[in-house]
């Protein structure tokens, strides 16, 4: 069987997420945090800080980064990389906005690490 390379799923309206905020999407492989920036871009990252697993969706969003709520690590939203002196990374997932709806490429999320 050939897995689809992309599988865009409508997960909700852009306005369901506040500007400079996030909501989570539950998947079989853990929660994915979907962020909305001040200027209405969306990013999807695993909701687990590389430091000690803090829920990034609960952090303060500034510019294109989020500060982890547990111990303050700053993670870039587009690349999932830790900023500044810290190191570590979290997985990112393709996301886009179309007609006010948020689409997530869930092919990987649904089939997960099995592929």
């Amino acid at each position: 069987m050939i897995w689809p390379t992309s599988n865009w799923i409508d997960i909700g309206a852009l306005d369901d997420i506040p500007r400079r905020g996030a909501r989570v999407v539950r998947t079989a492989h853990g929660c994915v945090a979907v962020f909305r920036t001040q200027d209405d871009r969306v990013f999807a990252l695993d909701d687990r800080c590389p430091h000690k697993g803090g829920p990034l969706s609960e952090g303060i969003v500034h510019g294109d980064a989020v500060t982890c709520p547990l111990h303050g690590m700053v993670i870039g939203l587009a690349d999932g990389q830790a900023r500044g002196a810290d190191s570590g990374a979290v997985a990112t997932h393709p996301a886009r906005v179309e007609g006010g709806r948020i689409l997530l490429d869930a092919a990987r999320l649904i089939r997960g690490r099995a592929a």
């Binding site: 897995w3 689809p4 599988n7 799923i9 997960i11 909700g12 369901d16 997420i17 909501r23 989570v24 999407v25 539950r26 998947t27 079989a28 929660c31 979907v34 948020i102 869930a106 092919a107 999320l109 649904i110 089939r111």
Partner: peptide, 10 residues
Amino acid sequence: PLADLTREAA
């Protein structure tokens, strides 16, 4: 959660 994909099948 905004959405729950745990039951989405490939």
